[in-house]
Each structure stands twice: as C-alpha cells, then as structure tokens.
Computed example of a mutant assay.
Amino acid sequence: MSSVAVVTGAGGGIGLEIARAVVAAGGSVVVGDLNPDRGRHAVAELGASDRVRFERVDVAEEADVERLVDAAVTTFGRIDAMFNNAGIGGAFGPITEQSVADWDATFAVNVRSVFLGTKHAARQMIGQGSTGAIVNTASIAGLSGGGGPQAYSAAKAAVISLTRTTAVELAPHRIRVNAVCPGAIYTELLHRGRPELTDRWREEIQPWPDRGRPEMIAEVATWLASDAARFVTGEAVTADGGLMAAAPRLMDHDLPHLQRMTGIAYGNTGKDPDVRRL
C-alpha cells in the first residue's frame, strides 16, 4: 500500500474503509469529507493521530480539492495515492421531470470531483518525480442500463471513461489510474435508511450469497493502489458479487416508487434531500 494517501468521502462507507486499510498498512492518510461531524468521527475511529488528518472539502470546488492535496504534502511531505471516492445518489425520478440544477449537481459531485482530484494529485505526483496511483470509485450503474438512476448512471459511466483516458495520458509519468465498480454495497448511500433494499437485491438478484460490505470494495481499491497491481492501469474492476454476470435491473424494484417523485439525494454530506412528489 502506498505511504501517503488522500481519500475523499472518507467520513463513512467505502471511503472510511479505504482510509482504515491505509492506516492498517502503516500509511498516512488525509480524510476528506464535506460533513465535518462524519470527518471528525472518522479520524477518532481510525486512531493513529500522527498519521491521520481531516480536511473539510467540497469535492466539486477546485480550490477545496487543491487545498486537500496540499494538506497531504504539507503534513506528510508527499502524496502517493489519490482515492476519488466521494459521491452522491443524485437526481432521480422520471427523466421528463428532473431539473437541470439537480442533474448538474449530480455531475458536479460525481464527475467533476474525479477530474479535480486527478488533476491536482497528478500535478503533485509529477512534481515529485515519483510513481503514483489514482483510484476512482465508479459503479456497475455506469456499465449498463438499470443499475441506477439516469444521472447517477451517466455520471459513473463518465468516471469510467475519464479513468481510461487519463490512464493513457499519465502512464509515461508512471502514474496508474484505475476504477473500482461496486455493486450493491451495504452503505447508507445505497439503502437510504432502508436496509431491506440491499437484502432484497442480494436475495433475489445477486448470485453471491453474502451481503456486499464497504471493506470488500476497500480491499480492491487499495490493491489497485499497491505495488501488487503495478502493471494494472486503465481498468474498471467490477466487485459486485456477480450482479453484472446476472444482468441486473436493480432499478426495476424501485421504479414504480421513483416514478411518483423527483428531486436529488445528497448522500452523507449533511444536506437534506430535496424531494418533489409528482
């Protein structure tokens, strides 16, 4: 595992488990999250206070992301791995009813953040003259129709495309860029306070019998950032318990419900969802 990492959306879920894996491997980590309460809780939970720092960051704002990367360099002297993990469920509802503002907000958090994290981490890595790794959290929703709401799915498809194009560009600098595509992972972002959602998908659709957990994705993400994956770049690695193999249509289960409302969900950022019933 790389020695100094930055993880966005690390206040909980997959991001927290990535940060935990970095610390467990003896590395240092800057925990980035928009929600300061979750960020401070994550730092307390991780321990190793001399190797963990929290920075509040709006990943859609360039100044914030640049400051986040600078915090790693100021505190720990360098950056070896950038985990662009932050994301929101985003806009939902019938495509005929979604607002442009909700659509743009979804892309700002889920795609612009990956662009900004890649841009500023790569600048620092190139300046250091050393190898580096960038790992983006995408989704199986970006691989086929029916894996998520329209804006979320399109955004995650963009993350996968951006991963591949930047992997080609940054390869001469020995900076690897990969993505991990989780399936139904048991986090608040997915079940939105309704844990039975993921259990229903696991029982009815997912071939592998175990519930998907954040640490399972963290293990894949940290492997992609490690020397064990030193010849792997430009890949979108699926970790979904066989969902893609079974051709999932996860959104079919929620479609009647979602067709009766529209709005945007902000995940664990601390911002309340905006829901408009049709």
Rank of each mutant, 00 (worst) to 15 (best):
E204G: 10
A151E: 08
V159N: 07
S226V: 01
P172Q: 06
A221V: 07
R200Q: 10
I217P: 00
K119Y: 04
A228V: 06
S153K: 10
D210P: 00
A218M: 06
D252S: 12
Y152A: 08
P195M: 11
I217F: 00
A155L: 07
P207A: 05
N178C: 09
T233W: 04
P209V: 09
A122P: 11
R202Q: 11
A167L: 08
H173L: 06
R164H: 11
R164M: 13
W208C: 09
I126H: 03
G241R: 00
R213M: 06
G132I: 07
S139C: 07
Y186S: 13
T166F: 06
P214H: 03
R249Q: 15
D227Y: 01
A133S: 14
T187D: 04
T137L: 13
P214L: 02
R200T: 15
A179M: 01
E203W: 03
A225H: 04
L170Y: 10
V177A: 07
G193K: 09
I217L: 03
I217H: 00
G242M: 09
Q128G: 13
T222Q: 12
D240T: 03
I175G: 02
T222M: 06
Q128D: 14
P209D: 09
V159G: 01
E215G: 03
P172W: 06
D210F: 02
F231L: 12
P149N: 12
R213H: 00
F231Y: 14
R200K: 12
Q128T: 10
S144C: 12
V159T: 03
L197H: 10
M216I: 00
A228K: 13
E188G: 11
A229C: 04
T137F: 05
L243Q: 07
N136S: 12
A171S: 14
P209F: 12
A221H: 02
L243F: 08
P248H: 11
E204H: 09
L190I: 09
Q206F: 02
S226W: 05
A218E: 04
A121M: 01
